[in-house]
């Protein structure tokens, strides 16, 4: 089976660009990244369908020269789903902009608190805990 090299290169470029954009902070760029990636994936389906042929309509094209219609149907479904997702993500980006006047993807609460701890608490203070609490232990303060 021979494969179309142009399609493969295009698809991989699109997916690569998409991944790069998804790594951005702004939700709009993430969305553009997902869309670019989605287009690359749709090309993958065309590659998966084998060699290109004529329109797969019975009666007008002899079956031997037809292209495989199934991947095209799958791509169509994927496009429709991508449309809905795009609308939803745009609405979310807009809402985020209303609330925060930006559409940055915000940090996970846990991630943020762990990073704060790392910044404030450079050395591990399990030593304090093991020796019965440091001077910042509220119980000690109460007794004092």
């Amino acid at each position: 089976m021979s494969t179309n090299l142009t399609l493969i290169v295009t698809a991989s470029t699109l997916i690569g660009c998409g991944v790069y954009l998804v790594l951005e902070r702004s939700l709009t760029r993430v969305l553009v990244g997902l869309l670019v990636m989605g287009n690359g994936i749709n090309l993958l389906f065309l590659i998966a369908g084998g060699r290109a042929g004529n329109a797969p309509i019975e009666g007008t094209t002899p079956p031997s020269t037809m292209s495989d219609p199934l991947p095209q149907a799958l791509v169509l479904t994927a496009i429709v789903i991508a449309l809905g997702t795009t609308a939803f993500l745009l609405a979310m980006a807009h809402r985020s902009w209303q609330l925060n006047s930006n559409d940055d993807v915000q940090d996970d609460v846990e991630d943020a608190s762990i990073r704060r701890l790392a910044a404030a608490d450079e050395a591990s203070d399990s030593h304090d805990l093991a020796t019965g609490g440091g001077d910042d232990d509220p119980r000690v303060e109460e007794e004092a």
Binding site: V22, L27, V30, L34, M37, G38, I41, L44, F45, I47, A48, G49, L70, P71, L74, A78, I81, T85, F88, L89, M92, S96, V105, Q106, D108
Partner: peptide
């Protein structure tokens, strides 16, 4: 805030699912 992460993660996994389907086909 929570929804943004949820939606993006799940869209990524859906993209991966589509890639898997193309590969399987």
């Amino acid at each position: 805030r929570a929804g943004t992460i949820y939606v993006v993660v799940n869209m990524l996994s859906s993209s991966l699912f589509l890639i898997s389907i193309a590969a399987v086909y």
